[in-house]
């Protein structure tokens, strides 16, 4: 039970960096983003979760959107990184790498 709860929190906490990294590969609409994230083992995205994150990232001006026609239905909203978003993502990824590295040291007992 504890692990379940922890995983839920973990998933939510990771969504920002996951979404920003996804968008770093090019504009994407929400539905497509969800399909891609579902293929990532362990992420186990809840489909609705991306939209509030995207909205918040838009509010922070890290992501912007525009509407484009779609091949099989109404026009879709595409999301893409802004310049500020790309810079923030770079900072986040750097921090993430540092954290990974630090924890590896801790696990190996390098600090002892």
């Amino acid at each position: 039970m504890y692990v379940d709860n922890w995983q839920t929190q973990l998933r939510k906490g990771m969504l920002d960096i996951v979404i920003l990294n996804l968008l770093s590969h090019g504009p994407c609409h929400g539905y497509e983003m969800v399909q891609r994230m579902r293929k990532i083992q362990g992420l186990k995205i809840r489909e609705g979760n991306v939209y509030p994150i995207l909205a918040r990232l838009q509010q922070e001006a890290l992501v912007e959107s525009e509407t484009r026609p779609s091949s099989d239905g109404p026009p879709r909203k595409y999301f893409k990184l802004t310049a500020a978003g790309a810079k923030t993502l770079a900072d986040m990824n750097t921090h993430w790498e540092q954290m990974l590295d630090s924890i590896q040291h801790i696990r190996k007992g390098d600090f002892l």
Binding site: K12, L20, G48, Y51, P52, I53, R56, E60, L62, T88
Partner: peptide, 14 residues
């Protein structure tokens, strides 16, 4: 989940 994830205090990437 929507409110929790949208709320600004959840995580500030900025």
């Amino acid at each position: 989940d929507y409110a929790e994830l949208l709320a600004e205090e959840t995580l500030s990437t900025q």
